[in-house]
Amino acid sequence: MPAFSLTTHLRPYARRLAFAAAALGLLLLGTLGLMRRGQSDAPAAAPPPVPVRVARVEARDVARQAESVGTVRPLRDVVVRTQIDGQLMRLHVREGQQVARGELLATLDDRPLQAALAQARATLAMNLAQLRSAELDLQRYRTLIADDAIPRQTLDQQQATVEQLRATVQGNRASIAAEEVRLSYTRVRSPIAGRIGLRNVDEGNLVRVGDADGLFTVTQLSPITVEFTMPQTALPVLQRLTGGGTPAPVQAHARDSGTPLAQGRLLVIDSRVGAGNGAVRVKAEFDNSGGELWPGQFVTVRLQTGLLRGALAARPAVLRYGEQDKPYVFRLKPDNTVEVVPVSVLYQDRQQVVLDGVAAGDQLVSDGQSRLRAGSRVSVPIATPTPRT
């Protein structure tokens, strides 16, 4: 009788267990394959719409503008200096005051000139007395010469004396006029209408003709001008604008904020082009009755060079550039998808762009273009009306 072996006895059960495990593994693999196949056959979820902002195309008249940087310059800016040396006795105006032409500004010590004028008048009176005496003698000599009582030479000498005294009297009167003019210089008057600047001297100081700074400045603020430069290529347009009957409008804006400051008109262009920069200087005039512009101020100048009537305008942000820098826009369709529309740029500035290839009322994407392509679905936020207070 053979010996009992546990290994031999369990071997059939081990085979059955291995077969069952293999069958279970095949079943699991099949189930997993079916699940993956079902997942691959399911449709992919649509991507969410891209949030964008849009701008509407408007048909309106658009002014073509040329932009430059200008400097505000007064039409007249006078440094008030004295025309004689003397002590400043009184200032009749204050700093920042608006004065009229001919208004009294300051007074100098006039006592030396008053004395010189009195002396000139006394000299005139003395010479007039001598002239009258010489004229009387001349009349007597003419009577005596008729009777041959005196020689002819005596009459001729007296005639010369009278003429000499008459010339002396004329010189005395000229001296008096000169002293009166010098005396008028002690009263300093404004040569123009304008605004008084900061004073350079105080009352009691000795002022001289050669003082470079003068007493103060008088600056005309209204009207005022702005000087700016334009490239020489703009000369035909500038000549057309200055040659017309109606001056071309010019706007001045603040350099930092872009706030409109004043509305003026083109005045004149320079007679030559700058040799160094190839630019021509241009001057515009502004009424400036409210003092919006100040001498020496830097402003942004916008010159209207033409008018596009019925132009299709939109915000500059709608414009995109593709290959070879060809412009295009994303236009919103009724189903909230976008299409790529090639356009032509007719005119562009900081506020607007005039396009060809779109229609009035089209809504163009102005923000969010970087995530778009033709056919992309978008969402446009609804603008909330601002409540009125």
Score class of each variant (00 low, 15 high):
Met1Thr: 12
Ser5His: 09
His9Thr: 12
Leu28Phe: 04
Arg36Thr: 08
Gly38Gln: 11
Gln39His: 11
Ala55Phe: 01
Val57Ser: 08
Arg64Asn: 05
Glu67Pro: 02
Val69Leu: 14
Arg73Pro: 04
Arg81Ser: 12
Arg81Val: 13
Gly86Tyr: 06
Arg90Lys: 13
Leu91His: 04
Arg94Ser: 00
Gln97Cys: 00
Ala100Arg: 10
Ala106Trp: 07
Asp110Cys: 13
Leu117Trp: 07
Leu117Thr: 07
Ala118Phe: 06
Ile145Glu: 14
Glu163Val: 12
Ala167Thr: 03
Val169Leu: 11
Val169Asn: 07
Val169Thr: 09
Ala174Arg: 03
Ser175Leu: 14
Ile176Asp: 01
Leu183His: 05
Val188Trp: 02
Val188Asp: 03
Gly194Phe: 02
Arg195Gly: 12
Asp202Thr: 01
Val209Lys: 08
Leu215Thr: 01
Val226Pro: 06
Glu227Ala: 14
Phe228Pro: 01
Met230Glu: 09
Pro236Thr: 01
Pro236Phe: 02
Arg240His: 05
Thr242Lys: 03
Thr242Ala: 01
Leu261Phe: 06
Leu267Gly: 04
Asp270Gln: 08
Asp270Ser: 13
Gly274Lys: 02
Gly274His: 04
Gly276His: 14
Ala279Gly: 07
Gly290Ala: 10
Glu292His: 15
Val299Glu: 04
Thr305Gln: 01
Gly306Tyr: 06
Glu323Ser: 05
Gln324Asp: 10
Lys326His: 09
Lys326Cys: 03
Tyr328His: 10
Phe330Asn: 04
Lys333Thr: 14
Lys333Met: 15
Asn336Arg: 11
Asn336Leu: 08
Glu339Gly: 15
Pro342Val: 09
Gln348Asp: 07
Gln351Val: 00
Val353Tyr: 00
Ala360Gln: 11
Asp367Gln: 12
Val378Trp: 09
Ile382Asp: 07
Ile382Gln: 11
